[in-house]
Amino acid sequence: MTAVCAVLFALITWQVLVRGPLLTPDQELSRALVHTLPDAVTERLADLGNVEVAVPVLVLAVAYAVRRGRRLAALAAGLAMALVPALIVPLKEWTARPGPLEPWAAGYYPSGHTATALTAYTAAALLLAPHTRRRWPLPAAAALTALTAAGLVVRGFHWPLDVLASLLMCTPLLLGVRWAAGRGARRGSG
């Protein structure tokens, strides 16, 4: 899975850098979606990926995991979240992709809001899942991430490929969190 994500991420990044043919359907899809919902709605959805919104959810889940003795999982989740800006910021500067509604601006690839939402909500879900009877944490994380991504694209803050690239980039980080969470859960049940 990590290799597939890396190859697809590299392909998309290459297309963004060389302004390749993959950008044509990306732009067409963006044009078809932008402003199909009220801006007031899509802005609120996009805000789910704000650091001020998503990271406190993860911080609470990390504190809960530490309290439950799942320090390795908590550390992995915190490390994954710390890696998001360390990866996103240089990529935004390197690619300098203009925005859908702001062609004079740069730094839209990959989507930091999508990366933040996916990493914070999914890592929190992975930390909480072993302690819940129902399986709501992961579907809730997926829904929050999907709503964030939809808000970003439909509002015109990001191209669809910006969002997809962030999902591909952060999936390996979350596989590491899942591994650590599973390791701690097995240790605790043994």
Rank of each mutant, 00 (worst) to 15 (best):
T171D: 06
W136I: 03
A76P: 09
G107F: 14
A123Q: 03
C170I: 09
L147K: 03
I88P: 05
R187Q: 15
E102Q: 14
R44A: 11
V53R: 09
A124C: 04
L118K: 05
R183C: 02
L23R: 11
T145N: 00
R135Y: 09
W159E: 01
I12Q: 02
D26H: 09
C5L: 08
L23K: 06
R19L: 06
M81W: 11
S30G: 06
A123L: 07
A6I: 08
G188V: 10
G69H: 10
N50P: 11
A10S: 12
F157H: 04
V53S: 05
A63V: 15
T119I: 07
L60G: 15
A6G: 06
G156Q: 10
A146P: 03
A32P: 09
S189D: 12
A77C: 09
A40R: 15
V89D: 13
T114H: 01
A181K: 04
P98I: 13
A63W: 11
S189R: 15
A82P: 11
L45Q: 04
P137N: 13
W94M: 13
V163W: 03
T145Q: 00
P90L: 11
L128T: 00
R178F: 07
A46T: 13
P137V: 09
G112H: 01
E102S: 13
G49W: 03
R71A: 07
A146S: 11
P160M: 08
L48M: 07
V66F: 14
L8G: 02
V18K: 02
L101S: 12
P100C: 10
P110K: 05
R97G: 08
S30A: 12
A46N: 06
A125K: 00
A185V: 08
P85S: 09
A123H: 00
A141D: 02
T116S: 06
A150G: 08
W14A: 07
S189P: 10
A115E: 05
R186S: 05
A6Y: 07
L79R: 11
L58D: 00
L118N: 05
A140G: 03
A123C: 04
Q27P: 01
L126C: 01
G151P: 06
A142E: 01
A106P: 03
T95Q: 05
A141K: 00
A105D: 14
V59G: 01
A123V: 01
R19N: 10
E102I: 14
A46R: 03
R186I: 02
T116P: 00
P25V: 04
H158I: 04
T119K: 12
T36H: 12
L29M: 15
A149H: 05
S111M: 11
L11V: 13
R19F: 06
M169Q: 06
A96R: 12
F9C: 06
A46D: 03
L167Y: 05
A106W: 15
A73I: 08
Y64G: 14
A96E: 12
C170E: 11
L91M: 15
R97Y: 08
P172M: 08
Y121W: 05
L37T: 10
R97L: 11
L8W: 03
R97D: 09
A181T: 04
T13W: 08
R178K: 04
S30Q: 10
P56Q: 13
L79F: 15
V51P: 02
A117T: 00
L23Y: 04
A165T: 01
L37D: 06
W136V: 09
A82D: 08
L75S: 07
V177H: 04
G188H: 14
L72I: 12
V62R: 13
L161F: 11
T36C: 10
T13K: 04
L33I: 07
A185D: 13
